[in-house]
């Protein structure tokens, strides 16, 4: 049997056809969004020092803001689970099956997102939390 050159996702041309490059780009974009959110979150929280916290919370207590929270959840979950994948790759875990690892991580993203979507839409529709 003649040896066929092994196809790898990481080498050569067609870089942007590889799942890994999209994973990398989205990791970067979600990371930058989260840096900005962390800064904003610290500043908003600090408004408690100026007695402006409750007024701000009224501003955030709108369906459109809850939907933005849900978009943030997507960034957090993607960044977290792709990060777990990167740590696994750093330690060589699952490196032979990196696509399976990636899509498994994305499945966890979808499952966790479903939980937060349920929480968010329950709040938007009924104004109650899922456990209250």
């Amino acid at each position: 049997m003649s040896a066929k050159p092994r196809e790898t996702a990481n080498v050569g041309a067609g870089l942007w056809k590889a799942t890994g490059m999209w994973a990398w780009l989205l990791f970067r974009i979600s990371g930058l969004i989260l840096v900005l959110y962390l800064g904003a979150h610290i500043i908003v929280t600090s408004m408690g020092q100026f007695d402006k916290f409750d007024g701000l919370m009224e501003f955030f207590d709108k369906p459109v803001m809850v939907l933005l929270d849900l978009a943030l959840v997507v960034a957090v979950l993607y960044h977290a689970l792709n990060g777990v994948r990167i740590i696994l790759m750093d330690f060589g875990v699952g490196i032979q099956r990196h696509k399976v690892v990636f899509w498994s991580a994305m499945a966890v993203v979808v499952i966790c997102f479903a939980i937060f979507a349920w929480v968010a839409f329950t709040y938007i529709i009924t104004g109650e939390g899922v456990t209250s």
Binding site: G48, F53, D54, M57, E58, F60, D61, I115, F116, V119, Y123, E128, G129, V130, T131, S132
Partner: peptide, 10 residues
Amino acid sequence: HILNIGELDS
């Protein structure tokens, strides 16, 4: 956001 949701205030 899941266990202890109440009024959104300080």
